[in-house]
Design a protein around this nucleic acid. Structure first.
Lengths: 236, 236
DNA sequence: ACCTGAACACCGTTCAAGT
DNA sequence: ACCTGAACACCGTTCAAGT
């Protein structure tokens, strides 16, 4: 076992351990996510998969949040950039629905996107597409710029909230029933409006509500002028 | 040290270890959050603080997510339910701003609220207040019911996104600069709309943008009728 | 420059056993 | 019923040392 030296192994005897690259790391991360959910995309698991130690990954990725954002931008390649027929509103809603669909497949990704915005090429292309459609609809440029933020945030937050959990569908159902129950159980004395609207508060299929939300948002963006004298980048 | 037995300690010699209750657990959790941020509100830390083992907490709290939601409902007691002057739109914006302010103090809480909606009495009162104001403004009931969801989600998502991190302000600044840089660096050839609107995409103080968002949302809610024939609770 | 093993300082949750 | 110690199965990130 010790003194006997094996015949030197050919370099390609088994799939040669590929050199680490950022692209390779992100690809492996996507694979883990598809197989076991984003919750399993940890530095340690990823390192194991790539046959190295976790410390090695920090050469290419700053931290776990950046890794998740990179995964999302990768998946955003599947968002249709040039939707089919209909007027600009309909095509706008199509693009947003397509974006939402990507996030719906992975709730964890939506949560990540709310905190660490992706900033890869796919995300940039998505913004370009949305701005072009708003422009086509005659939305004033300033409102379009701020509106894109509103639309993407709504889509992302909705996915973070309503997408089937990375884990337990049972638990999600229970959660929802509990919330609905709390609303329906509201006293007509102390909470007359809640009691009166209990049914409406929980009505509608998720897709129907999301679609209504997009239309309300687009309408508001179109009709709400920006405040005057605050166009400089004075953030913080 | 070993054989010598101390005088039996009076029960109230030091603040007697209080019996565990759900209220006491939530109160301790709030205290930890105020002192060290939500990130430190873990089952283990909480147990240490309450001088017990983590397993004991599971008698009163289902899991960490439920604990965080309970903390939020507690803090929601500070949201002003009866805002001062102005018309209904202004008062509506006041309530929403007050809600946002609570979340802004703890970004982690906003993230938690997106996933596990609180459902305590304070949250219920907030919904009642919002519905009453929308009703006063003549918003059709169905639109008001769905609109409340839209408004709260926007406020919550904005806080999750823009609130100063539980941790590093430095890192947040870097993040923002990176995003702004990516937008400003967009090529006028490949991304004409982004390039043309780079300044507007990142302009405005956060409060200004949030306020504009609230107004756009309210306008959209007011003018967008619900789709017909989808008022039943057909979720899933 | 890149890669690594090992370590530091933690997690959530469950279980069998006690009171 | 409530409470507990101990265990299971993990985490992210940093560091000094190697190549």
């Amino acid at each position: 076992m010790t003194a006997h030296s094996d015949v030197p192994r050919s370099r390609r005897e088994r799939p040669a351990k590929p050199a680490l690259t950022r692209a390779g790391i992100v690809a492996a991360a996507v694979a883990i996510m598809r197989a076991d959910g984003l919750g399993k995309v940890t530095m340690r698991r990823l390192a194991r998969e790539l046959d190295t130690g976790p410390a090695s990954l920090y050469v290419y990725v700053r931290n776990t949040a950046e890794l998740h954002a990179a995964i999302l931008d990768e998946l955003l390649g599947a968002v249709e950039a040039a939707p089919g027929g209909g007027d600009w509103r309909e095509r706008l809603e199509q693009v947003l629905t397509s974006y939402t669909a990507v996030l719906f497949r992975h709730r964890g990704l939506a949560k990540a996107a709310l905190v660490a915005r992706p900033r890869g090429e796919h995300y940039l292309r998505l913004i370009e597409t949305l701005l072009a459609l708003l422009d086509e609809g005659g939305v004033p440029p300033g409102q379009a710029a701020w509106g894109v933020d509103l639309l993407l945030q709504y889509a992302t937050a909705t996915a973070a909230e309503h997408a089937p959990g990375d884990g337990d569908a049972e638990v999600a159902r229970e959660e929802w029933d509990a919330v609905a129950g709390a609303l329906r159980g509201a006293s007509a004395q102390t909470h007359p409006h809640v009691a009166g609207l209990a049914a409406e508060l929980v009505s509608g299929r998720p897709e129907t509500r999301i679609s209504w939300g997009f239309r309300a948002l687009i309408d508001g963006i179109l009709h709400t002028p920006l405040p005057e004298g605050d166009t400089g980048d004075t953030r913080n």
